[in-house]
Design a protein around this nucleic acid. Structure first.
Lengths: 215, 215
DNA sequence: CCACGTACCTACTGGCCAGTAAGCCTACTG
DNA sequence: CAGTAGGCTTACTGGCCAGTAGGTACGTGG
């Protein structure tokens, strides 16, 4: 059923809680992404979600709770996207990495707001938020580290796998962040750029050697 | 001359403007770094600077002005540190890069608050702040791109120098950011890690080949 | 058709904080 | 010593916003 509110806008009425929660989370991600945590107001979020403020409090709790819920949902989405990408690659480590990177940048490109909330906003706030983030990052690093350990059992690789994974994950996060401000690139191009950088190294790249996706 | 204020603390009196401005900027960097732009209050900044709030407004202007002044000062410091590092290297591009990275991570390690304000806070706020940041990043990217162009005149290198420089700068920023949360590493170790990653690439690293600083 | 629960609202409060008004104190200058 | 300029303060205001009190509609099972 539908009604016209004071401003004459049509507003959907009496939807089930599940639907409203999704609307609210969508709106919150959008507003947190554009304004930042502190500058975002619950009034604006409720307005974008097309619902009144008390409903936001009834369903998702305080502003902190709401923000944490945003982070959790978006982090889960992202990790699922990456895992799906990696799992559809074969067993060549470079190809696995390539698919993982493509899935990652694909996600960031498609859900820019999600990424902005996850990386820029959450890491700028301290406390419990950053914790959620660190958990996600830890999972990503584990994934990459396991992948790198597959490539070789030389001592050097074993010794530095964790650190290198952290560096790669960091580089990926940062490149995604950079990409937010340079939207002219395609997801594949950004992914290829990072793949070349970390797999070949400048030392080879300047000699004209490049990594190429197979087939 | 010195007096005791109401709380019995000793407070320096009637210092020249120049000194007060430095105190205020130092305090502002510290508070912005720890609280974030919005959560930082001018009251707290003035308290940390050991001066009254109207003096902050008299000398540095509004909260926005103050934040912009912080970014400008810290960005200048950082770029000077990097330039000094690079200029004391010889003409081998890898060594120049190595010195630049060491200077960069040395700065971040020594002035963590500065880095936090520069990267985390400034990039989380939109508008004029991010602009200051983009300027600094552009200068850094130009520096690195020029350095990379020195390594070779192959077409591949020329074509991608800017993009690769952007990726490297992004990776460096991100690794520095990561380092904020992993203070157990030394600046040199973090710099070496990134140097290896970008110069050798995983493809070589897993075979046990590593880049070594000369001498 | 009544009772009860759930969806939903308007309209407020209390606190925090950016920014300011209005002037005091001290050092120097003539 | 009179004048003045700049360093410095206390004590306020006005607005914004998180969070809430206290309701009104709507539907459904008995």
């Amino acid at each position: 059923m539908r009604t016209n509110d004071a401003a004459g806008r049509v507003r959907a009425k009496r939807l089930p809680r599940e639907v409203r929660e999704r609307q609210i989370l969508d709106a919150a991600v959008e507003v947190f992404s554009q304004r930042g945590y502190h500058a975002a107001s619950m009034d604006e979020i409720s307005e974008v979600a097309d619902i009144s403020k008390p409903m936001v409090y009834a369903y998702l709790g305080s502003k902190e709770d709401l923000f944490a819920a945003c982070i959790r949902r978006e982090a889960t989405r992202l990790m699922e996207a990456i895992a799906a990408g990696v799992s559809e690659a074969g067993d060549r480590p470079d190809v696995q990495l390539w698919h993982g990177l493509r899935a990652f940048f694909g996600f960031v490109g498609e859900y820019r707001d999600s990424w902005r909330v996850l990386h820029r906003q959450a890491s700028a706030q301290g406390g419990p938020f950053a914790q959620e983030l660190l958990d996600m990052r830890r999972r990503a690093i584990s994934l990459v580290a396991a992948l790198l350990l597959n490539t070789s059992d030389s001592d050097a690789a074993t010794l530095h796998a964790d650190a290198m994974a952290a560096a790669l994950v960091g580089a990926g996060e940062s490149l995604a962040d950079w990409w937010l401000d340079h939207p002219e690139e395609s997801a594949g191009a950004v992914a290829a750029r990072l793949m070349n950088l970390v797999w070949m190294g400048f030392g080879n790249l300047v000699d004209g050697q490049m990594w190429q996706p197979p087939k």
